[in-house]
Write a protein that binds this DNA or RNA. Structure first.
Length: 527
DNA sequence: AGCTGAAGGACCC
DNA sequence: AACCAGGGTCCTTCATAT
């Protein structure tokens, strides 16, 4: 494929919406790509995307250089590398197991299915769950127009005038999701999932116990699970059956919609199926890795094996092994160490670009309250707080701080968050702000605090209780959006800094040197 | 040396 | 007329020292 043609297909966006996702075969890609391109081309998003693409391309170029360099090192060197690769392939093969059975179950266009079930009038219309800014899921009718999840709503509307938007109703999806998980638990209590609407089940024991541990039984079980889901929720599910986790997930995609796919438990057939597979179908290959691989001439899994030398040179050992394993259809087939507790909590919001501090401050205060409430429910505390933003140019920025102590109170979180926000000192307008807490421990010390707080807590404190206002520091003259307490801290620090400045330069640390402190009064006198 | 923390990314749904 | 989410996890790279 010529370079020109490729550019034409990508139309300047890293995320190729018309990539053959389920339900997207045989549509007019040319036309769809043009519409997407034309409605994107003048946006900041597009500009940013261009830069991003340039970076990825540059990375790919340097990989290519490394490859040709290595190729010029002579046959001995190349032979050595090939031996190393051979060893890795052997190692991968030794990890191939064909006697475990995984069934991956995934709901078809989950959110949209729920909405259509509850409002059958939508059934024969193109439906998108989401809003003008983002589509979470589209039904199969909408997909005929090239509309799909993670596409902005306004582009969806351009692609299909009659597209019906439905506001997402997450609590409902969570409820339905819980029903599905209940079913999963019957077949594999330790099932894994990466979202509300899917589960990856290791069903080997179930099959053995029910005397159905053979190809027919495996497929029958998938049918049974899907039927159970259908009976309980009236929602369609697809499934994939294979000998390991990631193969089962890939199989589900081939079974969609409302179907299932069985990948034979046979090395040759697995490799045969995988060889035609586009690398993007590999779980863990996203748009960036896909683009990078494409630049290196790798589009399908077959290409991975054919270009194993190049990839071995270009990537780190771990990434190489990951790619080679995927291409060979080898994957882990036992459960990961059980997933522990949640590791972070975050809230964020996107809005029309602004530099209104008060508005941003309101979000930060609100997020702090909400996070604090969640910590309360979990009886947990956290040690690190981070604030993230996106400038109007979609440039992400973040600042975080790990404290020497654990906190959980709204005000404590807020004060750190707002401090971090101020330290970021972004002058441009911003379009997004978020607060995240991490380093969570699931217990709480300082119980007395809690008791006092619980007793005196207003039962309906929906408004943030934090009072912040702009105030100017008399020392540095900067204006801050602070609480009174926070302002005191700043003033103290600011004065300390001033003290340092008035100090003669200390070359060596003097022991017990009297620390000349400056008070506010003193500061004015010197002025 | 290996850890930790900070910042930035990739990826998943 | 303008317009590209929000909730997570995990990984890599770099800093850093009386």
């Amino acid at each position: 494929m010529s370079k020109e043609h490729k550019d034409n297909e990508n139309k300047g966006l890293l995320c190729n919406f018309t990539h053959e996702k389920a339900g997207m075969q045989g549509l007019d890609r040319e036309k769809i790509n043009k519409i997407i391109h034309d409605t994107s081309v003048n946006t900041e998003f597009f500009k940013r995307e261009q830069e991003h693409i340039a970076i990825v391309e540059e990375k790919a170029r340097s990989m290519k250089n490394r490859i040709s360099e290595s190729l010029s090192k002579g046959p001995d060197f190349i032979r050595e590398i090939n031996e190393e690769i051979y060893k890795i392939i052997q190692e991968i093969e030794s990890e191939r197991h064909l006697s475990e059975t995984w069934i991956h179950v995934d709901m078809d266009m989950f959110y949209a299915s729920v909405e259509i079930r509850d409002n059958p009038e939508l059934a024969d219309k193109p439906v998108a769950v989401g809003g003008n800014s983002m589509i979470a899921t589209a039904n199969y009718i909408a997909r005929r127009y090239g509309i799909r999840s993670a596409m902005p709503g306004f582009i969806g509307k351009k692609l299909c005038e009659e597209l019906v938007f439905v506001k997402p109703n997450f609590s409902k999806y969570r409820e339905e999701g819980e029903k599905i998980r209940e079913i999963f638990r019957d077949f594999d209590p330790d099932f894994e999932s990466m979202g509300l609407d899917e589960g990856n089940l290791r069903v080997t024991e179930y099959l053995i116990n029910n005397e159905m541990n053979h190809d027919e039984g495996r497929q029958e079980l998938a049918r049974i699970i899907r039927q159970r889901i259908k009976d309980k929720t009236q929602l369609p599910a697809s499934a994939g059956i294979a000998c390991n986790r990631s193969l089962a997930k890939i199989a589900t995609d081939m079974g969609k919609p409302n179907g299932q796919y069985f990948i034979p438990f046979d090395k040759e057939q697995i490799i045969e199926i995988m060889s035609k597979m586009n690398v993007r179908k590999i779980p863990g290959v996203g748009k960036v890795l896909e683009k990078t691989l494409n630049e290196l001439g790798v589009v399908t899994c077959k290409d991975i094996l054919q270009k194993k030398y190049e990839l071995y040179i270009a990537f780190q050992a771990g990434s190489f092994k990951f790619l080679a394993s995927a291409a060979l259809g080898v994957g882990s087939c036992y459960h990961h160490e059980t997933r522990e507790e949640q590791k972070s909590i975050s809230l964020s919001r996107t809005f029309a670009s602004t530099n209104n501090i008060e508005e941003i401050n309101k979000y930060i205060a609100e997020f702090s309250r909400e996070i604090s409430e969640q910590l309360d429910e979990k009886n947990a505390q956290i040690k690190t707080v981070s604030v993230s933003l996106k400038t109007y140019k979609f440039e992400p920025k973040s600042k975080s701080e790990t404290l020497g102590r654990y906190i959980y109170k709204e005000l404590d979180i807020y004060e750190i968050a707002i401090k971090l926000y101020n330290e970021l000192a972004i002058k441009e307008k911003i379009r997004h702000v978020g607060v995240r807490v991490a380093n969570i421990i699931y217990r709480r010390t300082g119980a007395i605090d809690d008791i006092i707080e619980k007793v005196s807590k207003d039962p309906t404190p929906k408004q943030s209780s934090i009072k912040c206002f702009s105030q100017q520091c008399p020392v540095c003259n900067k204006v801050f959006m602070y609480t009174e307490k926070r302002m005191e801290i700043h003033l103290k620090q600011c004065l300390e800094e001033q003290s340092q400045k008035f100090q003669p330069k200390v070359v060596k640390k003097q022991k017990n040197a009297p620390q000349p402190t400056i008070t506010l009064d003193c500061f004015y006198k010197k002025k």
